[in-house]
Design a protein around this nucleic acid. Structure first.
Lengths: 192, 192, 192, 192
DNA sequence: TATGAATGAGGGTTCATTCAT
DNA sequence: TATGAATGAACCCTCATTCAT
């Protein structure tokens, strides 16, 4: 029954991510279990308390996003494109859920992912500096915080597809705005 | 006793906005009442059901944001600056709360504010087109959705001041990215 | 509504004691609330968590038993009769419930009752020694542990009235056995 | 594989008795299985429903207690000593568990043990009457109910060894109290 | 046969809302 | 009108029992 258990675990995680992103809220346990097609007891066997489910959900999406990011940097695209692709990919992997999980991951306890994430960010920033397309003062948090900002549903009643479209469009403008500033002759920085 | 009632109403609204932005969630009714220093019964006297409190909260922040926007366009600044200032101002007025209110304001029922909001957006877009600094295809939703996107706390455990700082910084990049595209000689748009 | 609240509190306590003694178990919260004729929410308003209800129940019966004991010693009966009456009275006051409450009163937090209980025991033991009817080495725990031992229903299916009768009968034999030993000429084997 | 099965059955029974006496409660099935070192499925194979496990546990301790009692009467000690020894022995055999099993053994279904128990009680009472040390109106229930009363842990947080010591001490006083009453000249009022 | 995963009924607790004072 | 007690639906979680391996 190991394989069944594995499949159930996967289904619960997928359902949890889906429901969080659909509803913009942390869903009721019963709803997750029902969406996964398992009993509530099964959910609790795999994730014995609130924290462990939320941790697993967060790991799940982070792992997906980081893996995608690693592929992107492996393909040796330019700095701007790498950052842009990573962010689009991360929100498609559901990275916005980490923004909707309370209390937030107090005890992350995932040194492996942290190491991979830090390496990924370092690589992205090196690429950015090498290629000179984006601001040279770009920092890791400009990427990380953007992923959680744009990955989260607006929750103002847009249908999911529309919400996703808006997110990607806004994200593109954001990344456009990270470009190295034009010479002043070309026109003004604006600023806050 | 009318003035007492008015004050209680104001306090409840202010507490609701404050708690929503502090916690990143729709707070419990008791918590709102307690933060306002009134009894739960008083809260329900002023806002007899869920919708009416949420509506009032939304009106409260929208009114502030729109009024501020009207002042901005009155001062006849350039299109880019007007959009940028409006957005910074809107998030400071707490416009992000409309993103955290569930279910979203199904029945807006505020024709006055809609009229003012539409007029404000029209004016901003005209200004943008007149001045030519931002994309000419800029639409009202590029502004409206940005205000709710950036107005909402990230809810990843940042202290409130830090969260606000991040929001303004991200917003600036977003507005930078709304500028009219450079000539291709200067280097590509990227795209998503 | 203070008086209503008070009455509800009393009713919940009485129902809890009654159900514990009837069923020999810690009853479900709904059952207590229903027996008290209040909603489950009311029960939780008065006793916000498991401990606080159990504490209150224990206090309730201890207070009754101690008060009765104080009256008994005030009436200046002989040592043996005082001990015997106290024990019969304590089990009628439901002192057996303290034996059925888990986890037991980890944090008693009732210095007032402890002081009264200790004084009562001291008085009883002085009376016993003064009158010479019971063993001179009688200790407080011989009384205290007896009250909880005999106060608890046997839980072997006896009807409540029968159970109570058995308890009183067994208790009488126990107290008889606490008498000062007969001279060896008269017999008596002692030890187990 | 028969011997394995037998050993598992024994282990489950022993664990059940041990846990009941340690905790003063009917333990969770998983806890019994774990303490026995078997899977929950194995427990249910041997004891397919609640009743059958509880029956088996009860039989287990009753059989031990009755056998011990039979040895005691075989050794032809006096009536008082026989009763006293039987009771001490019964509580050491764990007879108190029958007091903690709910719902109590509605359908005893153990005619063999009943026959042996009745014969044992008859013999004890005959011995008592023959020797004249204990009350001549002593009844079987004075013995049976005492065994379950004193065999049960007090459950007020005493360590197990201490609890057992208290039980034996209280039992001794109880048996002392079953002695034939003194002549009135010597004192003693009896009744409560 | 032994195992442990799956199930879901039921008990525990919270909280939005109503209502008596 | 202000208050906070009362209510019960809904959510959280445990655990007795079943079932697939």
């Amino acid at each position: 029954m190991r394989s069944d258990a594995r499949r159930n675990r996967e289904r619960v995680l997928a359902s949890a991510v889906g429901l969080i992103l659909e509803t913009g809220r942390e869903p009721a346990r019963d709803a997750i279990a029902e969406a996964a097609g398992v009993g509530i007891g099964t959910l609790y066997r795999h994730f014995p308390d609130r924290q462990s489910l939320l941790h697993a959900v967060a790991r799940h999406v982070l792992e997906g996003a980081i893996s995608a990011g690693e592929s992107i940097v492996d393909s040796d695209v330019g700095g701007e494109e790498a950052v842009r692709c990573y962010l689009h990919s991360a929100i498609d992997h559901g990275i916005g859920v980490v923004n909707m999980i309370h209390p937030l991951l107090d005890d992350p306890d995932w040194p492996d992912l942290q190491v991979r994430a830090e390496k990924l960010m370092r690589t992205l920033l090196e690429r950015v500096r090498r290629d000179g397309q984006l601001r040279s003062d770009l920092a890791a948090e400009d990427i990380v915080f953007a992923s959680v900002r744009f990955g989260r549903p607006l929750a103002i009643g847009l249908p999911e597809a529309r919400d996703r479209e808006v997110a990607h469009r806004q994200l593109d403008s954001y990344v456009d705005g990270l470009r190295a500033p034009r010479s002043t002759a070309e026109g003004g920085s604006g600023g806050g």
